[in-house]
Simulated scan of single mutants.
Amino acid sequence: MIANHFGRARLLNRTWLAVIASLLAALVSMSGRGAMAASPCTTTTTSSYSVQLCLNQPDADSVVSGNVSVSALATILSGSARVARFVYTIDGVYTLTDFMRPSNFVLPTAHWVDGAHNLSVSAVLSSGSHTSSTSETVTFANGITVVPPNTNSPTITSGTTPAPGANFVVAAVGDGASGEPAANSVVNTIRSWSPNLFLYLGDVYEDGSYSEFTNWYEDSFGVLRPITDPVIG
């Protein structure tokens, strides 16, 4: 009886040790994942302000494909600074400017060749000064080994035919695609006119990059594409 009692005690002790070891392993694993997923941040401090800039998405060192969500957040730690816009680069090359706070957009990763790329963001303050940039490495995996050339050609349209006796309505606007709410308001106003033809007179902010056209133009003025004629501007 005594031997049997001690045998059960040793078995229980081994069981508890196994449970504790499993819990410790799980905690270490969770801690490691949390460290890997931590957002890269930088803090810029001057005599007038202190601003922390974090690149929240995508995760650092992640492998991504297709259209990927990118987000960044600037926090004013002290002073009266105000963030005016976020400026993004990939491998040191200008990619996109976002005027919204916090910043969110979609990065069309298939526009770049596969491999590791440096995604970086800085914030421009209302005073015109820039924060230090924060960056991370992200690997694109789309099966792209050479940047595909743009073989698209302009599609010229004469617009839609107005109803008998109705006027042919032409709408034209420029300096509209910026990703700000006002751009969507302009689009809604134009659509309310039921135009037969639309002319976009140029400027997709900030520099008309591929990513800016994808986000700021397609998501707003893109709905007018069937009746849009391209113009130089």
Rank of each mutant, 00 (worst) to 15 (best):
V223Y: 03
D175E: 15
A177E: 14
S65D: 11
G176L: 14
S31N: 11
E136I: 05
V93S: 11
T131Q: 10
P40N: 01
I227Q: 09
A74P: 04
I2W: 07
S220C: 13
V231F: 03
D98H: 02
L201G: 04
T139K: 12
G174A: 08
V223L: 07
S178L: 07
D203C: 04
Q57E: 15
V223I: 15
S31K: 05
L125I: 06
N13H: 08
V138W: 08
L107R: 03
V93P: 00
S103L: 05
V93W: 02
T131S: 15
V87Q: 15
E206Q: 10
A171S: 14
R225P: 00
L125P: 04
N167M: 04
I232Q: 07
A177W: 06
G143M: 06
T44D: 12
D114E: 09
V113F: 01
V19M: 07
A72E: 05
W112I: 01
P108G: 05
T160I: 11
D114R: 08
M100Y: 03
D207L: 12
A177M: 11
V146N: 10
T161K: 10
F213K: 06
P58H: 11
F86G: 00
N4L: 12
V51K: 03
N104A: 13
L119T: 06
T95H: 04
T145I: 11
V173K: 02
G66S: 08
